[in-house]
Design a binder for these strands. Structure first.
Lengths: 259, 259
DNA sequence: TCTCCCTATTTACTCCGACATATTATGTGC
DNA sequence: GCACATAATATGTCGGAGTAAATAGGGAGA
């Protein structure tokens, strides 16, 4: 049975195989997110900038359209193309999140995402406990089994983890929740990835996942929310120590929780 | 130094003054969201489609880049441009939300948004109660006063309502929450707008807003969340009756709450 | 001196035609 | 029947020409 196959070539936006305009959008996007171009700045004119990047105006313009679509810039004749104020950026767009985490992610923004995750994920588990059906539970169970076989340090293990959480989202029967949670999860995993150096995981995550599963299977909404809350805290703990390793030399107030 | 200038003519994405490629993106976007083009469908080739729309290939391509940026379609040489599966759409993108509500919005999706709002808004009020400062409170107070002067049936009144909720979001000190809530709020207001026919508001909304303000001012997180919860329920009630007026002839199970 | 309107210029926007590249489909030889 | 080379096709990239819009600047009038 040739499983998956589905998620085989779905990475059109990654790697060097990206199209030219996509590469330009990526570069400009990361430059904007990293602060190289600040809100209010006007980019050099199309002709000048395209020439500087050694690309045609068409490719450059298509890249600008992408950035415009994500709320990063706006163009007007005579006035030029300028970076919009931060509150108009589509910060939850998967690409924008990716660009935000391409460099050294802003610690304040990471905190924002974790806070949002701590709000959304338990609520999602609550809905899942209310609405899941047999198929949902089977998918979760299979994913859990796969997680037990491979550890979270392997690709297969992380894939199983994703499957488990995706099954929960599917069970919520809520598209908006699905999209949102998937975006945040992917972004957070970006941060988790850059800390994948040897440091061992703090503790075996399987039992916590099992608790979530049991609560959802039992249809216990409160227990599901609480169990998911534990999982989110665990991930936060994980990321916190990783970030501390990176740039927090000694005991200063924790930037992720403010304590 | 001439200040402001910034937010003067910021409505580039609306009205007939939109650029050509923006108009094409709008048309194709609404066609996709409305189901005219289903996931998996391949669009006619660039040349053919551009000719059919009576526009140049460049303009058509730029529109496609916009849709691609929002996860609605993907293009590959030889294979053509095809509509992506719904789970890859950036449903929380402001434009996509606008396109979704351009026609008759899917009732299931509206339910999703309200459920998400019921999760996010009370949590936002909770954060606001914890982190607001004097300026935040003053902005809220001013907005409340303006709401009292004009009713919600006027433009000025609705603007004051927006200001009030924006002040709460600002007080959360959480960018992700701000962006998300602003998107959802705008979308929900889209639905509220199409029901703006004479039907009087069910009850005076001012006292409920005051309760939210008082709780935030007092720093009482639980009370703030609860008061905001009441507000969301009120909005849901509002939208429900509007939708019932539209397409639910008699007593069938409520699509928005499932009861 | 100030205000208003008109003009000029700058810039993005649109169009066109050609060529390059990537991917699928075809066909050929083994 | 399979592997590899080949061709066909659609998207991708390019360069240039002309259009439309918005700002800045100057001039007429008060």
């Amino acid at each position: 049975m040739k499983v998956d196959e589905t998620s085989r070539k779905t990475d059109e936006t990654r790697g060097p195989g990206r199209r030219l305009h996509g590469a330009i959008a990526h570069r400009l996007g990361t430059d904007i997110l990293s602060g190289k171009y600040a809100p209010g700045d006007v980019l050099s004119g199309e002709v000048a900038f395209a020439e500087e990047l050694k690309v045609s105006r068409s490719a450059y313009r298509e890249a600008i359209q992408v950035l415009t679509a994500k709320g990063l810039v706006a163009s007007r004749p005579k006035a030029g193309t300028r970076v919009l104020p931060r509150e108009r950026w589509n910060l939850l767009d998967p690409d924008v999140l990716g660009w935000a985490f391409a460099g050294e992610p802003d610690i304040e923004f990471v905190r924002s995402l974790f806070e949002l995750r701590a709000i959304v994920e338990p609520a999602a588990a609550r809905f899942a406990a209310r609405r899941r059906d047999k198929d949902d539970l089977k998918t979760m169970k299979d994913a859990l089994a796969a997680m037990r076989r491979h550890t979270l340090t392997t690709d297969a293990g992380r894939a199983a983890d994703r499957d488990f959480h995706n099954a929960i989202l599917t069970a919520t029967r809520n598209d908006a929740l699905m999209v949102l949670s998937a975006s945040i999860g992917a972004a957070v995993n970006w941060t988790t990835q850059f800390k994948q150096r040897a440091r061992a995981l703090p503790r075996n995550p399987i039992p916590d996942h099992v608790r979530v599963y049991d609560a959802i299977a039992a249809g216990d909404e409160n227990a599901a929310a609480e169990a998911m809350n534990v999982l989110v805290d665990l991930a936060l703990e994980d990321t916190r120590s990783a970030i501390e390793d990176r740039d927090a030399p000694q005991g200063q107030p924790d930037a992720l929780t403010g304590e």
